[in-house]
């Protein structure tokens, strides 16, 4: 019980930080909205899809997934910052649940994602994104996105606790997330990639997530590769399996790392 309360207090802290530094919220939303506009109008014109509504229908799931993938960097740099300032020492010297600080942070970062996704959804709507499957499926899609962000946030915990300084954290997170989001079906068809990369893109969790969202938002996944492969036939199942695997591996690893972090 008290572990839950401790976690809630830390989550509140995360949210209070957001209200105190509105810039964080503003910039975490501006960047994805900018991506929406840039991709919509730069690539949108040259990639023909033949689907109603065109490129933006395919693009939005891609950008949603890319944005939640960046949760990894957010969690990591936030924790690295706390470490640097000695704040983690203070928390660890308190008679509180030892996992509250990291669990609270991952939850707080997920709550931030809700706001960011909402703003992006509105921006997408403004430039022509129209999911065709009804509220239930769209909500399920967003739930998937939040869960994916949450799972990656735990990878961020490990990165944040392991790195020696905040700039390294930024770079490492970037190196992990950037290729993952681009070596995927998020923005362009994978069929143009070399064979090996196609294979990678096919199984890339970002691709399966994007495919899952496209399915839930009711748009044909034209950017997917070979039809008939397991991930392209079952994007929802594959994505769920990935999220479970990430959490099963990274939650215990991160918590252990946290307990030993300052040795």
């Amino acid at each position: 019980m008290s572990a839950l309360r401790d976690t809630a207090i830390i989550t509140q802290r995360q949210l209070r930080l957001l209200t105190r530094v509105p810039e964080v919220l503003i910039f975490s939303t501006i960047q994805p909205v900018m991506f929406v506009l840039l991709f919509r109008y730069v690539f949108g014109g040259s990639i023909s899809t033949g689907q109603p509504g065109g490129y933006v229908q395919l693009l939005m799931p891609g950008i949603f997934v890319q944005t939640v993938a960046f949760t990894l960097a957010g969690t990591a740099s936030g924790l690295a910052e706390d470490m640097k300032k000695g704040l983690i020492d203070r928390f660890r010297s308190l008679p509180i649940s030892q996992s509250a600080l990291v669990v609270g942070r991952t939850l707080g970062d997920s709550l931030l994602n809700i706001v960011v996704l909402a703003v992006m959804g509105i921006a997408g709507y403004a430039v022509g994104w129209r999911p065709s499957t009804g509220l239930g499926n769209v909500a399920l899609g967003f739930l998937f996105l939040l869960l994916f962000g949450y799972a990656l946030s735990w990878v961020g915990v490990l990165v944040g606790l392991s790195a020696s300084d905040a700039r390294v954290v930024q770079n490492v997170s970037f190196i992990v997330t950037f290729p993952l989001t681009f070596l995927s079906n998020a923005f362009a068809p994978t069929t143009g990639m070399p064979r090996a990369l196609q294979y990678f893109a096919e199984w890339n969790p970002v691709s399966t997530m994007v495919a899952a969202c496209r399915q839930l938002f009711g748009v044909e996944n034209q950017f997917g590769a070979t039809a008939g492969s397991f991930p392209s036939e079952h994007p929802l199942t594959t994505s769920l399996i990935y999220m479970v695997i990430i959490m099963v591996i990274f939650i215990p690893l991160s918590l252990r790392r946290y307990r030993n972090s300052l040795n």
Binding site: R13, R16, R20, K85, G86, L87, L94, I96, A100
Partner: peptide
């Protein structure tokens, strides 16, 4: 500690209340 281990962004009051709640 050697560094002031408090949350820079929060106010002094917020920090103390938060730590009080954690206690």
């Amino acid at each position: 500690g050697q560094y002031a281990a408090v949350d820079e962004i929060l106010t002094g009051y917020d920090n103390l209340v938060m730590f009080g709640e954690l206690y």
